[in-house]
Structures are given as structure tokens and as C-alpha cells.
């Protein structure tokens, strides 16, 4: 399962990140790494962007980017 499939309010643990280097590095610096727990805060109306929370960091990302993050529900 990938992060983009997660619904509002749901949490999951990250298993692996399959994005290319630049995106992976960005994820990394926000703490979006293997083993961290994420919660989905909300989606935008168009459904193309989502807001998630990791620890104390809230971050926004595109669903296309979330697709590269593998999670276990």
C-alpha cells in the first residue's frame, strides 16, 4: 500500500521510499523515513495534494509524490 491511498485521519508506518534522489532527500530532512509513523490530516478539494503529520512536523505533498512512499496500514 502506498501513502496516497491513506484516508483522512488514518495513520501508518513507512516501510520504504521508492522516489528518486531529490524527493527522497527532501522527505528525509522532514523525518519522512523508514519506520516513522505518519497521519493524514487532510486533502485538498481537487484531491491532488495532501497534508500529513510526522511527529511534530506538518507537511504538504502531492499525491503523485505520496505514491512513492510504501506504508503498512
Amino acid at each position: 500500500m502506498t501513502l496516497n491511498m491513506l484516508k483522512k485521519g488514518q495513520s501508518a508506518t513507512i516501510i520504504a521510499i521508492h522516489s528518486e534522489k531529490e524527493l527522497k532527500n527532501r522527505f528525509n530532512s522532514f523525518g519522512l523515513i523508514k519506520g516513522s509513523i505518519i497521519t493524514v490530516e487532510r486533502h485538498t478539494l481537487g484531491g491532488k495534494t495532501m497534508e500529513i503529520r510526522i511527529n511534530k512536523t506538518r507537511m504538504a505533498l502531492r499525491l503523485s509524490e505520496a505514491e512513492t512512499v510504501e506504508i503498512s496500514a
Binding site: 528518486e20 531529490e22 524527493l23 527532501r26 522527505f27 522532514f30 495534494t49 497534508e51 512536523t57 506538518r58 507537511m59 504538504a60 505533498l61 502531492r62 503523485s64 509524490e65
Partner: peptide
Amino acid sequence: GEDEPFVMEMP
């Protein structure tokens, strides 16, 4: 070229 990542903190 590749899209730049959007990933961004919501402070």
C-alpha cells in the same frame, strides 16, 4: 525535465 518536488513544511 522532472517536476520539482512540492513537498513543503506547514509551519
